[in-house]
């Protein structure tokens, strides 16, 4: 196991990502943040909190999206996926949507997420924020707009983002399967 980002580094990266969002979207008037269930939501929770602090806004439109039913591997994966909750309490029609997920790998999750999102309306524009980009492993033409950390990995490796609220501590690690 190799640590890619420790607690302090991860904190800085999150700060930078939040500032980049504010730089592009200024007052978040027409922008919404949507975290992808289940593990992207830990990241989006943090990002939303930081953006609120920077913009001094009390409320930012924030939703959670479950993509289980939109996956393209319902039959081919060994285990059927158990869904999480989708909670998008606003219309995405003509909004700038920022999709948030922890690790970008093949791009298939984001493909599913875009399909799922479009079922809620027609956004003006969709952007993608990821904490870790496992580059050169994409199976679809998908590219992030905001990237926390870029890493080159091989097939047998796995990137795991740990969160204090779920896993006890904040860090990004690279696991190598035996």
């Amino acid at each position: 196991m190799k640590t890619l980002l420790n607690n302090a580094q991860l904190d800085l990266t999150l700060q930078r990502l939040a500032h980049q969002l504010v730089e592009n979207h200024i007052d978040f008037q027409n922008t919404v943040i949507i975290g992808i269930q289940p593990r992207g939501v830990f990241l989006s929770d943090r990002i939303v909190k930081l953006v609120k602090e920077i913009t001094k806004k009390k409320e930012i439109a924030y939703g959670k999206l479950d993509i289980t039913f939109y996956r393209d591997d319902v039959h081919t994966s060994s285990d059927i996926q158990i869904p999480s909750v989708t909670d998008i309490p606003f219309s995405v029609e003509k909004k700038n949507v920022i999709l948030v997920d922890d690790v970008l790998y093949t791009g298939r999750t984001i493909r599913s997420a875009m399909d799922a999102l479009i079922d809620f309306g027609r956004p003006e524009r969709v952007e993608l924020l990821v904490l870790v980009d496992r580059r050169f492993s994409r199976e679809l033409p998908i590219h992030p707009d905001y990237t926390g950390y870029t890493v080159d990995t091989i097939l047998t490796q796995k990137v795991k983002v740990n969160w204090k609220e779920q896993d006890g501590k904040d860090e990004v690690v690279l696991l190598t399967k035996p």
Binding site: D66, T68, F69, Y70, R71, V74, V85, D115, A116, D119
Partner: peptide, 18 residues
């Protein structure tokens, strides 16, 4: 989860399109 899907404007998901 499916009850939630049925309350959306588009009440359909593509899980079993094959």
């Amino acid at each position: 989860n499916f009850k939630q899907v049925l309350q959306r404007p588009i009440k359909k998901v593509p899980s079993l399109r094959d």
